[in-house]
């Protein structure tokens, strides 16, 4: 029984981590999950937050703003989002794209600023938490 698994954390814009790990902890859609080598095939959405990886005897932390997690017995893939995602935020973006198409002269309609602010706040607080934890472990 192998006691490590291949872990790839990639985002659309770059590769974040690729290598072997013993344990991966990630906050999935329905709560935190820990993935050890040999896990059953599993696929889930992940929430904004941190990913903890145990490589050899040290821990590594990454921050992701959401994405997808795919687990195969020996390969774990995290498809991380680079963008802040929320349905109403996507909607606002889509609306903007349409408006741009409908001539750029009469733009500046009320965009859901609230949604943007809320998503940004959630992201910022998750990022803060990761930073705090990292600071604690490094001391």
């Amino acid at each position: 029984m192998a006691n490590t698994m291949q872990v790839d954390i990639v985002s659309a814009e770059q590769e974040i981590f690729s290598g072997d790990a013993k344990l991966l902890v990630v906050s999935a859609e329905m709560g935190d999950v820990g993935i050890a080598p040999g896990h059953a095939p599993f696929i889930s959405k992940i929430k904004p937050g941190e990913i903890t990886l145990r490589v050899e005897n040290e821990e590594q932390h990454f921050y992701v703003s959401g994405g997808m997690l795919e687990v195969q017995p020996h390969v774990v893939t995290v498809l991380a989002d680079t963008a802040i995602r929320a349905d109403d935020l996507d909607e606002a973006e889509a609306q903007q794209a349409k408006e741009r198409a409908e001539e750029s002269l009469k733009e500046k309609q009320g965009t859901p600023d609230y949604a943007a602010a809320a998503a940004e706040l959630a992201e910022a607080s998750a990022r803060l938490m990761v930073l705090k934890k990292m600071r604690n472990t490094s001391r």
Partner: peptide
């Protein structure tokens, strides 16, 4: 029906989601 310009040299996925 939709358009996006001024993406710049380093396009971000963020810029494209709406479109």
């Amino acid at each position: 029906v939709a358009e996006r310009s001024d993406i710049g040299d380093a396009p971000k996925l963020n810029d494209l989601i709406g479109t």
